[in-house]
Design a protein around this nucleic acid. Sequence first.
DNA 1: TCGGGCACAATATGATCAAATTTCAGACTG
DNA 2: CAGTCTGAAATTTGATCATATTGTGCCCGA
Lengths: 227, 227
Amino acid sequence: MDLIKNKPNTSLTEGGKRPVHEQVYQTLKSQILFGDLVPGQPVTIQGLTDSLGVGMTPVREAIRRLISDGALIFQGNRRVSVPLLSANDIEQMIFARIAIETELSRRSTNNIPDPDIDDLEQLDQRLDRMITDGDVGGYLRLNHAFHQALYAHSDAPVLIDLAERLWLRFGPSLRIVCGRFGTQSLPDRHKDIIAALRARDTEKAAIATAQDIEQGMSMMGDALPGT
Amino acid sequence: MDLIKNKPNTSLTEGGKRPVHEQVYQTLKSQILFGDLVPGQPVTIQGLTDSLGVGMTPVREAIRRLISDGALIFQGNRRVSVPLLSANDIEQMIFARIAIETELSRRSTNNIPDPDIDDLEQLDQRLDRMITDGDVGGYLRLNHAFHQALYAHSDAPVLIDLAERLWLRFGPSLRIVCGRFGTQSLPDRHKDIIAALRARDTEKAAIATAQDIEQGMSMMGDALPGT
DNA sequence: TCGGGCACAATATGATCAAATTTCAGACTG
DNA sequence: CAGTCTGAAATTTGATCATATTGTGCCCGA
């Protein structure tokens, strides 16, 4: 009987029963991670209420959440905008991502069932297709999905939360870099990660993850400060 | 002239010029870190509007921010409460805190000027007084201030933000543990940290920080699951 | 170039609607 | 007869909106 009450409300986009402010938050999150929000771009409450067709209270709540996430910054003069990253910021993110996400990979290596490794490999193949097709948005979306699916088996919600927070921070900047250099220049170590998972080799998984992060982030570090 | 405008607005209660939702956020943050909010306790919007004497919109915004911080959890049934930590949660926090805060200590060791080391030492002496006096609230406040003052010289805002997020998560639980066992059983490695700072020994500072974290957090891990 | 006003956006409140929990009453069972 | 379970009403709380107020930045005129 509880099953009927707790229906799978996971439908985000369609008119679910979830509160509007939650939907607004998810929408903005997607726009930040994969969308067209560029660093430095101002974000106005009224602009969002108009474009999303909802009241301002849910929009305000979503924006506050994203500010706490580091995905948006409050500029003091009650202006909100997408953050511009400094070289120092990116360096810190590389450090933090490697520290946290290698641990997530280690934990997932011990827990992930074989069928889910297959799913991960399939996800990576679709991701390769995005790269060859030059679909930047699709690449970003699937790259995020790959890491998310990997870490989902870590049984470490606190660490996942920290990692997600970091992704929200560098999302817009990563998008700019990909848009400028194209997807061709985006090597990843996903194959190595999958191989390590199959071998149940935690350290190999951690090393491959660190290399994957290092490559993507340092490319962003090289590209952005010159902007 | 800016000095006049940017008065020490740190007074949360009195009518500063800062927006109300910011004041509410800071107030709740203090209550979570040092106050009487106990894990599992429900937090209601209307209760806060009544007790703080402000409208519901600022309260809602502050609560959303704290949920994003992990300081409060959304229980699904649109109820919000102070999180209860599992042993797994604490283990992850130990890992993340050691990874991030040791790095913050390393960076601060390279940057902190000598006079500020003196200030830090003075802070630690006041903290010792709180321990001998058995003032739990004062201990928590000064312990937080000590780490905050140390990390302030790290020039690493992203890492500081991640660390602060973790403190907000374990704050209420730490308070419970201190309240139960008293402050006498709270050894810290602050003396070692200060010595390492004076010697400009980054690795010694990192090790002392890790031990400080390990001690405090593992004590919490031992105490809480039995609750 | 500087000062005053004008317009826009954000802040904050109160009202209204919806949902969920609690409570209370009644009936059924042991 | 007592205790408990069920179900519906009532109260409490949350979500959203519309509106008034305040602060900011911009523009125009001197």
